[in-house]
Simulated scan of single mutants.
Amino acid sequence: MSLLALNNIEVVYDGVFLAVKGISLGVPKAGLVALLGANGAGKSTVLKSISGLLKAERGQVTRGQVTFDGEDMLALDPPERVRRGLVHVLEGRRVFEHLTPEENLLAATSMHADRAKVKRLVDEMFARFPRLAERAKAKAGYLSGGEQQMLAIARALMTEPKLILLDEPSLGLAPFLVDEIFDIVRRINAEAGVAVLLVEQNAVAALELVNSAYLIDQGRIVMSGTAEVLASNPDIQDAYLGGGAKHVDYHAVKHYRRRKRWLA
C-alpha cells in the first residue's frame, strides 16, 4: 500500500489555466521517488497540490484524490497536513535569514508541546548536520547555499515527518554540494525511514538516488518506472542525461513519442 497516492489530479490556476492534467502517482512507505521534467512542466504544482500550498497562488485541485496514509488530504489545511506527517521543503530553501539556524529549527516546533522533546530534536539535527552546529549562532542569511539547504531539510525533519516533499534541492549548488545533499537525503531515508518525493531537474543525480521515477511533460505523466528503466531510455538520455545511447531501443522511443502525442 502506498503512503502517498495521487489519483487523476487536475490543478487549475485563476479558474481558467489547467496546469496539471490527470496526474496519478504513488510513493511507498520509506520510498525514494523522483518527479522529473523540464522547467514549467508542472512538477512544483504537483508538490503544492499535495502539501496544500496552491491557494496562496490562486491554484486549486479541481478533480481527483490525494490520499496520505489512507486519509483524504484535500479537506485538510497545510498545517494539519504537516501534523499528519507530510512536510514540504520549497524550492529556493526559504530559510528565515534573520534568524540563526537554531532559531530556524525552533520555528518548526509549534506542533510539539514537550520542550524536552524539542531540545532532543534540535540536538539530533545538529548531530546529523555538523556544519549547522558549527554555525548555530550565525544568521541563516550568511550561510552558504549548501548550508541553507541543509537547514531547510533539518527544519522539515523537526516535524518528525513520514514523507518529505523536496523541491529542487540541487538548485544553484556546486556539483560537490549536490552530491553531499543527496547523500544526506539517502541517509535520512535509510536511517529514519522517511519517504521522499523528489522534484528535480538534475535527472542524473536524481536517478542515482531514487528507486523509481515519473516523468512529467506539459502537466501530464508521460513515463514512469524504476530508476534503471528511465535512465536507460534513449529519449530520457537525449533530453535529460546529456546524450543518447549507442544501442537505441526504437520500440521504446516510438512508444514514448506516441504517448506524448496522445496526451498533448
Rank of each mutant, 00 (worst) to 15 (best):
P234M: 10
R220K: 14
L157E: 08
M111H: 13
S170Y: 07
I221D: 04
Q65C: 08
G225E: 01
Q65T: 09
L143H: 02
K260M: 12
E208R: 13
A231I: 12
A264P: 08
A138D: 12
V178Q: 11
Y256F: 10
V46F: 07
R187V: 03
Y142V: 12
S44I: 13
E134I: 14
G145W: 07
L157Y: 04
P101H: 10
L54Q: 00
A206E: 00
E97Q: 03
S24M: 00
A231G: 05
V12T: 15
K254V: 13
A239V: 12
L54T: 01
G26D: 08
E208D: 13
A205D: 03
V194E: 05
L54G: 11
L106N: 05
E71L: 08
V194I: 04
H98I: 09
E91P: 06
G193Q: 08
G172S: 05
V248W: 00
V199D: 03
T62M: 08
T226N: 01
R220P: 09
A264K: 14
Y214V: 09
G42M: 04
L47T: 10
S44E: 11
E80G: 03
A34V: 01
R84L: 15
M111T: 14
A245F: 02
E191W: 06
E71H: 06
V46W: 09
P28N: 12
Y214H: 05
F17E: 08
A19K: 05
L6W: 10
